[in-house]
Design a protein around this nucleic acid. Structure first.
Length: 629
DNA sequence: GCGGATCAC
DNA sequence: TATGGTGATCCGC
């Protein structure tokens, strides 16, 4: 099935192959091609409801791109990813060969969990937000296929989506798919104004409203429901009606016990609809079972393909493949996958805080530059823009990162930290220039600057004026030992007019999922029978949560394979090593070190990277769950 | 702290 | 004619 490797030996092969084998090989090659076209088609293709002829659309996209540097870069990345996946598969097979599968399955099932259903969380999502605002600006767009954004579409109208046009798609591709599409400019001021109007309505339902971007946000309506003695569905219907009345814009909403589920639900009856998940553990699990993993926020195209390579396409597959996934924990983060399957996620809702911002940056794409002077001038211009942003936003920082994209579309970053907080171009530019000069000569299509390790200049911190604070002190502002809340970034803004989108984050796993706790009655077994029927809850129901007594904090981490406590001092690394040893001392230590990419080959560069870890769920790999005092 | 990757919007 | 910009997180080193 490799795409081409045996091209030269092809003849021989063909002769030896039976017709069935030939057909199978062809089918496999075609499947691979479709898979590539699908992954190539763009980040948002396939995320939302797809159309019947998605395959054709993907092919048009791929053909329109063929031969471009962008395309070649995608081919390169696809090839690397394919090799990575093959490596994962080989690793899985190797580990599974020596694994005690029933044992692994039983260990996997011992991961117990609590799905917190005490809060009613709502995710609201404006329908084709930018496009809807554009229609208000120019009513002649109504009902037409159009996209917002010129080079790249930030949004496509629903009519344009029928042709396969999606956000993130290059404009000329959209035109291939839909020749009569209209491309409009962006009008950020309008989006910001509309967003603000929406926000004002939402704030009446939850003063802690958490906006995740201009067009979506989270509310905890639990207090509102009790104050007004209303059901969740009624609250949300009313809220949506009010938003529509005040802004003429429609939104969709999802109601669920936590942010992840609410977000998934808000997609279910979009546009202009709402969906409430039943607050029942078995219903939640049933809901997740058939859900493609790609629907989970944070699971993107790459993760999707990696999991697909392991036979996991839906969240339910996570359960049926639990043995393989447990053995692959080091690379995929078994615990995070379990949380996805079980629908467990963060249910906290709070507005973002200024101090939580981590970086401020500016970047620009342009026609290829190769001239050193041009490049350095561009850098100077970017530094000035960054200075303006920093001044407006009131931040200083200590780490300067230069980013550039080669004409081949490969990205590079170069960073340097300094001992004091800086914010002016006068301070930033020399550092940036020095970093960049070392890279010359280059042929690039993008240049950017970012400042991180920030200090919020609006907090009057102990009098000292920014200037000559020596690089000591100042370290502790953020600890908050307690709830381990690193919650969410949210857009702050308020006064001025800049689109500050900050990110949301899904996890922050408080203590929701906890392996093996034997204490609580709220606990039940996570794992229902994989397919068909909901589990007779009892069979696995109580499971042997007590089977092994283990106050794990006294015994240290417990190896999920041999179930032995490793002692209180054992680090995650140590546990990992033990697991490897436990599964197979020899094969693993050897194979584990080797990277799948770039075999020996000409050492054109220094080195091989290691296999990336997949751990979607924040702290990633299971080890973190085991320790937890 | 640095650099590459992935992800979301 | 020609595939974006901003910000976050994670991992391995």
């Amino acid at each position: 099935m490799p795409p081409s490797p045996n091209k030269d030996k092809g003849k021989e092969k063909v002769v030896e192959m039976s017709e069935e084998e030939r057909q199978a090989a062809i089918a496999a090659a075609e499947a691979r091609q479709r898979s590539f076209e699908r992954s190539f088609a763009g980040p948002s293709v396939g995320k939302a409801g797809l159309m019947r002829d998605q395959t054709d659309i993907n092919r048009i996209i791929a053909e329109a791109s063929k031969g471009s540097k962008y395309y070649l870069n995608q081919v390169r990345k696809d090839k690397e990813l394919t090799e990575k996946i093959e490596w994962y598969q080989a690793k899985r097979d190797e580990l599974m060969k020596m694994a005690n599968i029933p044992r692994l399955e039983s260990e996997a099932e011992r991961i117990e969990s609590i799905l917190d259903m005490s809060q009613v969380i709502v995710h609201v999502d404006m329908d084709a937000f930018y496009a809807s605002v554009e229609v208000q600006r120019d009513p002649t767009l109504k009902g037409k296929a159009f996209g917002v954004g010129q080079g790249v579409l930030t949004t496509a109208s629903y009519e344009a989506r029928k042709y396969g046009c999606r956000s993130g798609m290059a404009g000329f591709i959209a035109k291939k798919l839909c020749p009569h599409i209209i491309l409009t400019k962006m009008h950020f001021d309008l989006y910001i104004a509309a967003s603000k109007a929406v926000r004002e309505v939402l704030l009446q339902y939850d003063e802690n409203l958490m906006m995740a971007s201009l067009d979506e946000g989270y509310l905890n309506i639990t207090p509102y429901m009790s104050t007004h003695n209303m059901t969740a569905a009624d609250v949300v219907s009313q809220l949506r009606a009010e938003v529509q009345a005040k802004t003429q814009l429609t939104m969709s909403a999802g109601i669920a016990p936590n942010r992840m589920l609410a977000k998934i639900c808000s997609d279910k009856n979009k546009p202009n609809g709402q969906y409430e998940m039943e607050f029942d553990r078995t219903v939640v699990t049933k809901f997740m079972r058939d859900l493609p993993v790609r629907k989970i926020p944070g699971f993107g195209r790459v993760t999707e393909r990696c999991l697909e390579g392991l036979g996991v396409e839906t969240c339910g597959d996570i359960y049926s493949h639990r043995a393989e996934l447990l053995v692959m924990d080091h690379w995929f983060g078994f615990r995070g996958l379990c949380k996805a399957y079980l629908g467990i996620a963060d249910n906290s809702v709070a507005p973002g805080k200024r101090e939580e911002r981590k970086s401020v940056g500016v970047e620009r794409t342009f026609r290829e530059k190769t001239n050193d002077e041009d490049i350095l001038n561009e850098l100077a211009s970017i530094a000035e823009e960054l200075e303006k942003d920093l001044d407006r936003l009131q931040y200083a920082g200590k780490t300067v990162t230069v980013k550039y994209k080669l004409h081949t579309y490969e990205n590079k970053t170069r960073a340097r930290s300094v001992g004091k907080y800086i914010s002016s171009s006068k301070d930033i530019l020399p550092i940036a220039l020095e970093l960049m000069k070392r890279e010359l000569p280059v042929r690039i299509r993008l240049l950017g600057l970012r400042l991180s390790t920030l200090k919020d200049l609006t907090v009057a911190d102990k009098g000292i004026k920014g200037f000559f604070t020596s690089p000591s002190k100042k370290r502790a502002t953020s600890t908050e030992a307690g709830p381990s809340r690193s919650i969410t970034p949210i857009p702050i803004d308020d006064d001025d007019d800049i689109p500050e989108l900050l990110r949301m984050e899904e996890e922050d796993e408080a203590e929701v999922l906890d392996m093996t706790n034997d204490d609580n009655d709220v606990v039940d077994s996570p794992i229902p029978y994989d397919n068909g029927t909901p589990p007779p809850t009892s069979t696995l129901g109580k499971r042997k949560s007590l089977e092994v007594d283990k106050p794990s904090h006294l015994l240290g981490p417990v190896c999920p394979i041999c179930n032995k406590a490793l002692g209180p001092g054992t680090s995650n690394t140590g546990l990992n090593e033990h697991i490897d040893w436990c599964l197979n001392k020899d094969a693993i230590s050897e194979a584990s070190k080797r990277s799948p990419v770039k075999k020996i080959k000409t050492d054109n560069k220094v080195g091989n990277r290691n296999i990336p870890k997949k751990g979607k769920d924040g702290k990633g790999t299971m080890l973190s769950w085991l320790k937890k005092p």
